[in-house]
Design a binder for these strands. Structure first.
Lengths: 142, 142
DNA sequence: CTTTATAAAGAGTTAAATATCCTAAAATGG
DNA sequence: CCATTTTAGGATATTTAACTCTTTATAAAG
């Protein structure tokens, strides 16, 4: 596991919203259905994301959620870490207590590199970029 | 998180045992103390590892645990997965339900590569190799 | 044979993550 | 104002991981 279910649901929901037409309001229940996420649980996550400023919420008939500029400009990593805390905290794959740059275990250097690569992968692009590339992938090439 | 606490404790204990003199019997309580692991919990994990054939256990005065050839020849990945199940099951860092080689999300290829690299890192060397390289690191260079 | 040290086994506890349910509040349409 | 729809929020249940405790079985030493 790289992130928890909660973090995964949050990202799925945010990227779903990022792919919708600007200013469209999407109901929590629709996101849940389309992304196959437990609907009450997703509602909770959306509540939290509203507090963090990642989505705007509108009650009542015709209401729903939409993604904010803040979230569009954030990376996946930033959002996940806001929701669930630090991603990949594992210091050492051999579990050595005292493993460090000074006293490395045999796998220390390679693992450090991989950990950095993962962080880079999910932090170097904004949600907006990822979503737009996703839409590009879907457009027929021809 | 790459593995759970349980898996991490198992690896710490196995690598600790792998670094001991051959045929030495080490008490569960000593491993717990030296590796800073909750002792009763570690006892449970050692029990399971005894069932899996990764350690041999000896009751009574002078008893304790020692690592088996099976564990010496296994990779860290094999042991962790036996203890806690599959490592890094996350299919897609963008959480897309339908992400696959055929319909990749924008981060699919890079993520697949990283996931494979992690698996390779913890599966290409045996416990014996890792432990012996660890001991080498500890020997003064001079 | 008795005592003691040790692991085995299993029951029980705690804590955190995940998931569900119910009521309140707000906005809209009539 | 009233009814309906939708989010907000609190309470609670479920599940799993993490940890603790107690008793039993086994082996060795005296």
């Amino acid at each position: 596991m790289i992130y928890t279910k909660t973090g995964e649901y949050a990202i799925r929901a945010i990227l779903f919203l990022a792919r919708q037409p600007q200013d469209a309001l999407i109901m929590s229940s629709e996101i849940a259905e389309r992304e196959d996420i437990p609907s009450h649980y997703l509602a909770k996550i959306l509540q939290r994301m509203a507090k963090y400023g990642y989505v705007d919420s509108f009650k009542g008939r015709g209401g729903g959620f939409k993604i904010t500029k803040l979230a569009q400009d954030s990376s996946i990593l930033e959002i996940v870490e806001r929701i669930e805390g630090p991603v990949i905290t594992l210091k050492c794959v051999t579990g050595l207590k005292e493993c460090s740059d000074e006293h490395p275990c045999p796998l220390h250097d390679e693992w450090s590199k991989l950990r950095d690569n993962i962080h880079h992968l999910i932090s170097s692009k904004s949600v907006r970029q990822v979503a737009s590339e996703y839409n590009d992938n879907l457009k027929p090439i021809k």
